[in-house]
Simulated scan of single mutants.
Amino acid sequence: MLRNQLTLSLDLALSAMSAALAEARTLGVRVSVSIVDASGQLIHLAHMDGAPAPSRDIAHDKAWTAAGFGLATSAWEERLASMPASVRDGLMQRPRLALFGGGVPVKVEGSVVGAIGVSGASAEQDEQCAQAGVNAILAALNQA
């Protein structure tokens, strides 16, 4: 099913959303969760009661960035440190790029098929919630 489409279905996104929100509840944090397809288009967005209002857009930006680069947004801190200042400054001024933890790509057979972005808690907690969603997708695919 997914391997032919090379993108996420709504059913997989719903499963991932449940897992990401459950992880947030376990951590005791309130977040927004955005799930996008391989091209960064929104599939599903949830905003927990009490999550900061800007976290909606930030979660979407994290998912969009992770899908676009095929790289967890947490990896950018190290990458930016090794870049020339002009490149680093240019990237950091780009609209929509979220270059801090909380966005995780979903990869199947080496191809990016989507991504999950989470915002509202610490970067580490956001990423933990996003990874829980990714894990739910991968587990569902292994059962198919």
Rank of each mutant, 00 (worst) to 15 (best):
A20D: 00
E23N: 02
E23M: 05
E23R: 11
R25P: 01
R25M: 06
T26R: 14
L27N: 10
G28W: 02
G28T: 07
V29N: 01
V29R: 09
R30Q: 14
R30K: 15
R30C: 10
V31K: 02
S32H: 09
S32W: 07
V33R: 07
V33G: 07
S34M: 02
S34R: 02
S34W: 00
I35H: 03
I35G: 03
V36N: 11
A38R: 11
A38D: 15
G40Y: 09
G40S: 09
Q41S: 15
L42T: 04
L42E: 04
I43Q: 03
H44V: 13
L45R: 04
L45A: 06
M48V: 05
D49A: 15
G50W: 02
G50R: 14
A51T: 11
A51P: 11
P52I: 05
P52H: 04
A53Y: 14
R56D: 12
D57I: 10
I58L: 11
A59K: 00
A59C: 01
A59D: 01
H60S: 13
D61W: 15
D61R: 15
D61V: 00
K62F: 10
K62W: 11
A63N: 07
A63Y: 03
W64G: 01
W64P: 03
A66S: 14
A66D: 11
G68A: 15
F69K: 01
F69I: 03
G70T: 11
L71G: 00
L71E: 01
L71I: 04
T73C: 08
S74V: 12
S74Q: 13
A75P: 01
W76Q: 04
W76F: 15
E77F: 00
E77A: 15
E77H: 14
E78S: 15
E78W: 02
E78A: 15
L80I: 08
A81T: 09
S82W: 00
P84Y: 09
A85H: 08
A85D: 13
S86Y: 11
V87P: 00
V87D: 14
V87F: 12
V87C: 02
R88C: 03
R88D: 02
R88Q: 07
D89I: 00
G90I: 02
M92Y: 02
M92A: 06
R94H: 04
P95E: 09
P95L: 03
P95S: 07
P95I: 01
R96H: 12
R96V: 05
L97Q: 08
A98V: 06
L99T: 04
L99S: 05
F100A: 10
G102D: 08
G102P: 09
G102E: 03
G102T: 07
G103F: 06
G103I: 05
V104W: 04
V106P: 05
V106T: 13
V108I: 14
V108F: 05
E109D: 14
G110Q: 11
S111D: 11
V112Y: 07
V113M: 12
V113S: 12
V113G: 12
V113Y: 08
G114R: 06
A115R: 10
V118C: 12
V118Q: 08
S119R: 06
S122M: 08
A123Y: 08
A123H: 13
Q125C: 07
Q125F: 01
Q125S: 15
Q125G: 10
Q125N: 14
Q125V: 02
D126Y: 01
D126R: 04
E127L: 05
Q128W: 00
Q128G: 00
Q128D: 12
Q128I: 12
C129A: 15
A130W: 05
A132C: 03
A132M: 04
G133H: 05
V134W: 05
V134C: 09
